[in-house]
Write a protein that binds this DNA or RNA. Sequence first.
RNA 1: GCUCCUGUAGUGUAGUGGCCUAUCAUGCAGCCCUGUCACGGCUGCGACCCGGGUUCAAAUCCCGGCAGGGGCGCCA
Length: 471
Amino acid sequence: MGDSDEVNWHPTNYRTNTLGEINSNGEDLVGSEVTLCGFAEIIRGKGAVCFIKLRDGTGTLQAFIKKGNVTDEELEICQTASRESTLQVIGTIAEKRPPRVPEGAPTPPTEYEIVANKVKILSLAQTPMPLGVTDKVDVGMDVRLDNRFLDLRRAHVNAMFKLRSRILQYGREHLISEGFGEINSPKIIAAAAEGGTNLFPIKYFDRDAYLSQSPQLYKQLAVMGNLERVFEIGPAFRAEKHDTYRHLNEFISFDIEMAWASDEDVMCVQERMISHIWSKIKENDQNLIDAVNEFRISEGKDPIEVNVPSIPFPRVSYCDAIELIKNSGTEIEWGDDIEAHHADIIAEKYSEFYFIPKWPMSMKPFYIFHDKNEVSKTGGQLSRGFDLNFGRDEMTSGGQREHRANVLTQNLIDVDLNPDDFDFYVDGFRYGAPPHAGWGLGVARLLMVLTGAGNVRETVLFPRDRKRCTP
RNA sequence: GCUCCUGUAGUGUAGUGGCCUAUCAUGCAGCCCUGUCACGGCUGCGACCCGGGUUCAAAUCCCGGCAGGGGCGCCA
């Protein structure tokens, strides 16, 4: 898919080339013998000829099978094979005859095909399929998820997950360029670490343990260990019975933590990273966006455009956000949470990415830093915690962290957590601690923003929600 | 936890008490045509979530179950 220039698809035991390579280098390959593999997307033609549109992970290519070029058995097998069966075709690359076009329509660009002299079925697809790969029939989410392996073969779904990979790739490469190193923190944890959310209990040999809700405490300890700047892309688990378009019980959190930095510093890292991701996708992956758009248009939706957001993103401090919401006539008080319907009001003015810095300390977890001198007009203690929103949806939560061990201990007491349970963590701050800051970003939500997907289940391969833990 | 909604062929649907031995599309099977390409033509296959009730009559109304979806709440 357009990346054959930079990727080396080495030949395998099954094929000499990818279909994408034939499409992009067809001119040079005309006349040469190749072995190709793919799924049979469409099988057409009876009598003396058969056309099979092959599809692999790099593109599609027509195989032309003609009586006399192959054995009669092979022709018969091809003509009776079911769609989505997998095939190996040995043949010669040739220019494809152009299709008939309506009077006055432009001639389509030259395409290539493989003229088969040997065809082998690798695996015959069972019929009927639970959902059609190319059928123009809507499919319900449930059927799609139950048969995700087939759903994924649909061009726009396939493109969605390639875009997801791109987001991770470009995000990684940007952070590495700013000195970050990738870490992995444990997902099995001993205590209900941070409070605030329900955890999934598990059995760890004879002990009770939990699935991690976030790498927060561990990435901070890594920074305490002088790893300086770290990031982690890993799963987080929350046992909340939510049932919305934007929540899952298992999700991939893209986290960073950096030493010698404030909340503002890591907001800058984040906006640079998102801007980098957007501009690289615009530069390299328009083909994937096109695949998504082809589907959107067929559904009567507007196509998406990759507009690289300009930086810096707007900063709408918590206090200003509350003012803004109040002025719109909606009832809200300082100290209330900014819920999705409140964010709608902010989004009228800031429709894309914007930060909400300086939340009340009372609303943020114990590890967030606060400065006694930073208070609201009403005297409420502010924190260095921030969110990143896109329109109504929260993308990120982050902040400068508390690095003073004695304040940390007091913060724990203030939120009714037992400091003894956090010795493993607070001890990390007793032997010299750099001021530091970080954030966690929901990868699936970022992909939703990029692709206009209306449901987080569109952006996660095998989503885990309240009702689903298979496949 | 609260609330609203929905279960009809493999898939997506039409259907609001009798016109339903149930519509259309897609699919699948067979035949015909064809260097096809949104191929075309003909024929066929395939379904009312489960259990009870109301009624002369139920896909349709009622009750229960099961399954699914939307929204809210909850949610570093």
